[in-house]
Design a binder for these strands. Sequence first.
DNA 1: GGGCCCTCGTCCTTA
DNA 2: ACGAGGGCCC
Length: 642
Amino acid sequence: MTHKNLKLLNPSQREAVTCKDVPLLIVAGAGSGKTRVLTHRIAYLVESGVKPYNILALTFTNKAAGEMRSRVVSLVPGISYTSFWLGTFHGICLRILKAESKLLGSFKNFIIYDGTDQIALIKECVKNLNLDEKKYKAGIVCEKISRAKDDCIDPEEYLDMADNFYQQIVAKIYKKYQERLREIGALDFGDLITYAISLFKKHPDVLEKYRNKFQHVLVDEYQDTNHAQYIFLKLLTAGKKNITVVGDPDQSIFGWRGANISNIMNFEKDFPNVKTIKLEENYRSTQAILSSANNIIKNNRERKEKALWTKNTQGDMPIYCNNEDDIEEAESVAGQIEEFLSQGGTHKDIAVFYRIHSLSRVIEDALRRRNIPYVIVGGVRFYDRKEVKDILAYLRVISNPNDVISLKRIINLPARGIGDVSLKKIEDYLDSRDISLFDALSELNNINISIKTKEKISAFVSFIRKHQCFDGSLAKMLKKLIKDLDYFNYLKRQDLPGTEERIENVKELISAIAEYEENSEFPSLAEFLEQVALISDIDNWDNKSNAVTLMTLHSAKGLEFPVCFIIGMEEDILPHKKLSTGESDIEEERRLCYVGMTRAQERLYCSSAKRRRIYGRWQDMETSRFVGEMGVELLAHCEISG
DNA sequence: GGGCCCTCGTCCTTA
DNA sequence: ACGAGGGCCC
């Protein structure tokens, strides 16, 4: 019941939940019950008569969406699990694009290209335009194109804005890249948002439909939205009073990915008659932890002033430990974890955060030596593992033979005698014709390659066609594919380190597709591939498993743990090196540190090393400026001996 | 065309 | 330290 639910909220939270008919900005400090407010607000809306299907809620990760969904369902008895639109920006935009796909011309089955695919395709474009690959590095160009998309800049606009030769060339690559994506029928992450925007702009009737549908739009983590997402929201809500955004400028940590902190800073100017509510009571951390976190963040200039406080107990002072080297640091962390466990603590209560993935290795070694179970979030994502990507590439080609990037990945894997030379000949032939690579593989008459090779290519084409025709469950199809490829023996023949693990990963992929099939109403290979592309590192993390969690500070956003470690508190690591040039970047690094500290409920350990192995070489490190900013009087130092 | 060896850049964070 | 990619030989 509404009344009962509202009683569990503090006055500001209650106001944020019940406030009506104004654009609403909720500035929610770390641990102030942001998710609680959002879920209660959705529940409150439904209970006051809003139909669930008239609600759109946007989150940052699938995990956050899933948690929010189940919390709303438990708050509103009888609400259907799927009746309201709740998901990530990318997921929701894909859903809209699929619903309106008849307006999108060539797109039928969507393929979503991830970072690796993007770089491979850009590399192809650079080659195709006869540009110097050393000068126009695919990774860097990809970065530029992705940022342009985040800012809603298309290739023509990019060219107009280019003020040097390099940028003009990037504009040319960008244009080519978009053409190629379209031919393939693929979208990259940025396209999901920008295509939804141009769909709305080109078809006002469609926009109107969604504007009417979404009577209430709620956005989580608003501080991390980019310009394109802002435009998307503006289109859906302009002139209406139905938008609620929740965020904390102090936790804006995705500037490098195109997030625009001014979205939240300027929200009050952007939307007329905004109501702003600050949530400043922290329910998560002890006073000692909160004080040192506040001490750090107050050094930032670009922020919305707020005073985070707590009724929680004072608690233990955060501990800072400076170690001789990274190995000693890892030993010290593992030792303190062991100590905590021996006092009756549980593994899942502990997290270790770091600025960069590479710091996890020494910690892993130390934990393994002590037989302390741990899980790593991210690093090499499951779906980024070579063996998993290989099999996924097969599935993608089976689903859409126009996917050249995947096709080229697998055409000679396992080796079947179709090498670079033949492929080059076919591609040259393609240049003058308007057909896809896969089509060309099916009709080789006019291409000058040996009969033997042609036979091998035909065999490959029939192999793909055969699996396209498979009827039966997806899991069965995948099992047959792996068997027909003799993929496990291929892995064994390769004899690379970790063969057993690779085989396990492929088996895991079979489980994943089987699980998808069980949970989906109308399972299809194309939809499975879409879902896989939008899975994030954190989505796969099981917070109930009995293990210590290791993750980056970025992944830690939105989570909480009784005991937290932040390692590698050194200049050039936190704050990270390339970012130490400009003051505003330092501010983002400081926010990152703040995010890490405010994850801790009871105990916070920070540490650094005087020496660290980087690129296999020892390097002297200097303690991070952030340690000093925490306030010495708020910090317990621990001196380590052997 | 396949496989071996050497060189080079990289290890910043991600939907 | 280590994997990706180029050069070279079979």
